[in-house]
Amino acid sequence: MSDTVIAPSSFQEIILRLQEYWSKQGCAILQPYDMEVGAGTFHPATTLRSLGPKSWAVAYVQPSRRPTDGRYGENPNRLQHYYQYQVLIKPSPPDLQDLYLESLHAIGVDLTLHDIRFVEDDWESPTLGAWGLGWEVWCDGMEVSQFTYFQQVGGHDCHPVSGELTYGLERLAMYILGVDHVMDMPFNDPKAPFSLSYGDIFKQTEEEYARWNFDVANTEVLLRHFAEAEAECNAILSVEPTDPKMKQKIVMAHPAYDQCIKASHIFNLLDARGVISVTERQAYIARVRTLAKACADAFLETTAGGWSAEDVL
């Protein structure tokens, strides 16, 4: 770790430095998944790839949506659309904590001035049928990352175990840049000819989506889409594994999982519209979990999930 800390000047510089840092550590830098998800964990590069025996190392930014967290852009740090930075390495390397701390140094956190703590936080995702043990990482009392060793995903034991790091980018960047309101945060270089703040880019969309999420989204349509996604997911998975055209086994784990993601996001929207009662909630979560488990089962039947034609013979 070099001693000099160079302060970043913008949100995007922090992202770029993370990309560069994890690239140097040997991670494949993926692009965001092209669907609406609630967190970086939902990206198939994490959910599905944490299963099976094959080694894996990726890092990516994932735009994430949590409709209930919308505050019309007025709350200093609550957004319905925000960015997570996600790292997943399988098997988890023995020095993952050190790698993580160096990444903080890389984005401008002076480790000699701040108080970094690993505070117990067991992670569980009822919708993914997944759990792991780890910590939330505190910097001067503020949670800046989640650090998890995956134990189970989609109801399957993870072996080897993946180490997952999730950085809440806006909150972390606001702290490093010394900004009190997310909308005031410089997105690009403040000295650029056309400097843009986070608010220039997202204030209006936060307002639009908050209004739509809370008051306008057509719940009948959403309820129908939920049922359709669920049915499509099940339909995809019930198709004969061998493709008659290619004459080989093609289990469609990823297309099925897309439908699972879709159902999960629609559930979040319905939740924000306040049309799901407490008792129904559990039932919806269970339905999404059933899909996630079925997708996990299917993934383990694919080459990426460790299936091999030779094993069968």
């Binding site: 098997p91 988890s92 023995p94 043990l133 060793y149 134990q151 080897p160 175990v161």
Partner: peptide
Amino acid sequence: QKSMRWGT
């Protein structure tokens, strides 16, 4: 009370 595996 609760324990975990890591790596391989």
